[in-house]
């Protein structure tokens, strides 16, 4: 919106009827030239530093994970065999696909992957069903109410994730507050077994990731042109019909962004299943951690990580693409 209009600062100079003294103009020209020469250098420094950091601490590590997933476990520190060996002028490269084959053979891994996908997908759906009306209500609230309401959504996200998950233990326990409450109401006769089950994992994930769903939804719903809904109403559409054919399609970018922001981390979730889940709530994040720490099998843990990454590559690419499109749209305005 700003970029499109000519820079106001340039206006007075151009509009001044009296020409500026030539020396001043020359000086300005020189400085502009200087700026253009200086700027690229400053810019490249500003670009290079964070990019170098991310290459070293984010991209290179993936290469190492891939490398170690192809090596053999060993009882040593670090507990894996080197990939390359140099002996008698022969460089040997040993690629061990055993870790991946092992994952295919043992059904534990397939079950954990499928279970993670199922839990993440259903939790995402529940977040959407709860988050959409909330985001809609906030976007349609009186303008002075929107910021405080949004703040209320964000605030739990700032308080400790671990503590918020912990809070549910006291609620969901056998003798916990929820069971006490339901018994007192007379809804149930015997306490429900919720903690250490898949249900508790669902509750934990929906609870922890709900803000991630609401924020992008709010961002798209708030920008929605209300006159479109009026037009739909004028043309005879019932509110529900107008919602399905106007509001919902226009808020689709928010739906996609929010869903991916919940789905992707939920697939690899580790804290929630280990604190709230029981043996039936097997998730790939916990499997990876157990391979790494309890079994000390770093190569298999790496293979599990690579497989998880492959599973998430498509959703992550969709998310990145979506973000890129949004940024481009913002830059154009």
């Amino acid at each position: 919106m700003i970029q499109a209009s000519p820079p106001p600062a340039a206006k007075p100079a151009a509009a001044t009827p009296v020409a500026a003294p030539p020396t001043l103009a020359a000086r300005g020209g020189f400085q502009r030239a200087l700026r253009h020469r200086l700027l690229p250098r400053g810019r490249s420094l500003v670009t290079v530093v964070p990019v170098f950091w991310l290459l070293l601490f984010f991209l290179v590590p993936f290469g190492i994970v891939l490398k170690i997933s192809l090596s053999e476990a060993a009882i040593a520190m670090p507990p894996y065999e080197p990939l390359f060996a140099w002996a008698e002028n022969v460089l040997t490269l040993r690629l061990n696909l055993g870790n991946y084959l092992f994952m295919l053979e043992d059904s534990l891994y397939a079950v954990a992957y499928l279970n993670s996908l199922k839990i993440a997908a259903l939790s995402t759906l529940m977040c959407l069903l709860l988050g959409y009306p909330m985001a809609y209500a906030i976007a349609r609230a009186a303008p002075e109410w929107r910021s405080p309401l949004l703040m209320l959504v964000i605030l739990p996200f700032w308080t400790s994730f671990l503590i918020r998950v912990y809070a549910w233990i006291g609620i969901l326990k056998q003798e916990g507050l929820l069971n006490q409450f339901l018994l007192w109401l007379g809804v149930i006769d015997a306490p429900l077994h919720i903690l250490y089950s898949e249900t508790a994992v669902y509750i934990g994930i929906v609870y922890s990731y709900l803000p991630f769903m609401i924020l992008p939804l709010y961002a798209t719903l708030e920008k929605l042109d209300l006159t479109l809904l009026e037009a739909a109403a004028d043309l005879g559409a019932r509110p529900w019909k107008a919602f399905v054919s106007v509001t919902l399609p226009l808020s689709l970018p928010g739906v996609i962004a929010g869903s991916l922001l919940v789905f992707i981390p939920a697939v690899g979730e580790f804290v929630i299943p280990s604190l709230l889940g029981g043996p039936d709530a097997l998730m790939i994040g916990t499997v990876l951690w157990n391979e790494f720490s309890a079994n000390r099998d770093w190569p298999v843990a790496s293979a599990v990580a690579i497989a998880l990454l492959l599973l998430l590559v498509v959703p992550i690419m969709i998310f990145q693409h979506q973000q890129g499109k949004q940024q481009a749209a913002e830059a154009r305005r």
Partner: peptide, 22 residues
Amino acid sequence: GALVTAPLVMPEVITGLSLLLL
């Protein structure tokens, strides 16, 4: 842009393991 925003959505178990191995 992709490199900068990728850590936002990367599952923490993967980031953690890869950093440790680094």
